[in-house]
Design a protein around this nucleic acid. Sequence first.
DNA 1: GGATGAATTCAAGGATTGTTGAATTTCGCG
DNA 2: CGCGAAATTCAACAATCCTTGAATTCATCC
Lengths: 201, 201
Amino acid sequence: MAGEDTTVRRRGRRPGGQDTRTALIEAARAVFGESGFDGATVRVIATRAGVDAAMVNHWFGSKEGLFAQAVLKLPFDPHELLAELKDGPDDEFGRRIVRTFLTRWDGAGGEVFQALVRSVAGHEQAALVLRSFFQSFFTKVIAGLGSDRVELRTSLCASQLVGMGLVRYVAKFEPMASSDIEPLVTAIAPTVQRYLTGDID
Amino acid sequence: MAGEDTTVRRRGRRPGGQDTRTALIEAARAVFGESGFDGATVRVIATRAGVDAAMVNHWFGSKEGLFAQAVLKLPFDPHELLAELKDGPDDEFGRRIVRTFLTRWDGAGGEVFQALVRSVAGHEQAALVLRSFFQSFFTKVIAGLGSDRVELRTSLCASQLVGMGLVRYVAKFEPMASSDIEPLVTAIAPTVQRYLTGDID
DNA sequence: GGATGAATTCAAGGATTGTTGAATTTCGCG
DNA sequence: CGCGAAATTCAACAATCCTTGAATTCATCC
């Protein structure tokens, strides 16, 4: 893990090209993911990055600025995500989507999703980014599949996927919190598939 | 609305049997529902109740204590909720559940649900109460319907319903945020129905 | 009707947090 | 090698926020 320095930090510029800006962004993703925007403190983030809290203001202007760079400016875009999923039969699109979301959420970069969901209550812009992401992604998917009522279907897909994330990673319902990915894919995929192309009225 | 007094409040005990304890609880439900536990401040709650902030500590010991009484001690119990839903065909159980959740969430007492979901990120006990409620409720429902894998089905139902609440009331995805209840019931009920009694593997 | 106790407000304490300016050290360039 | 610019830490400030104790007013009971 990072930040295990027992040496007393000296004042002034540090030797070596240690990229504290990047270290701060990574620490911020982790801490915002664990505590949300309101719960996270600048001091905790800086400590985890092995750096003084004033660095946040120096590099990002404010806590808000750091949140904007680390979380709101997503480290992946709907376009690229969609490209990964296009290949395969249409009637398994829901399956691929659920698997991809769970895999990303579990792995590297998942802290950003957690930070978004955990901050959506108190941070208006987090809600905005979450909406934009799902709209951008599912609008393309649903239109590509030739379904009607694109916006409603998008909301429905978002409700199931965001709910899945909240229950698994935040509220930690068992057995969903500790389950392997594949059983969840099998259970949830039909829901998403119906929201994408099936009967919704 | 309450709290529209333009008269300068005098010090000391108030005349008349004004129940400030109850006023505080109602104001707390509203404010916690809008801002979550972290976002809500004692002053805002007290002001909305038309009372000084010190009353929170006098009546409930702390902000935590007020949250416990107003939100964590739910103003309804799974038992009673289940009684309302038992009547009707089994294959429309999901339909009745979704409709009931949306109706309650929209109406009186819905602030408590919103407060729970909005606080689940930062408040560990809010997550606990949310889990307990869904477990207590759906364990009875699913067992009553004779399905297996009760815990997994409970988690799945919770994921769809919590996600629905988050998308509709907190993140405010359109058109789900402004939709009437019935179209949502029609769209989501099949999901819950399958999680209750259908194939999940 | 007067005394005791409860309810309420006010003002301030104590803790935490985001932010800023000065001091200090190192890097990079001439 | 020397000098200016950038990076980093430290200490402190200002703003909140929850909490508490004293002062004040009303209710209740004898």
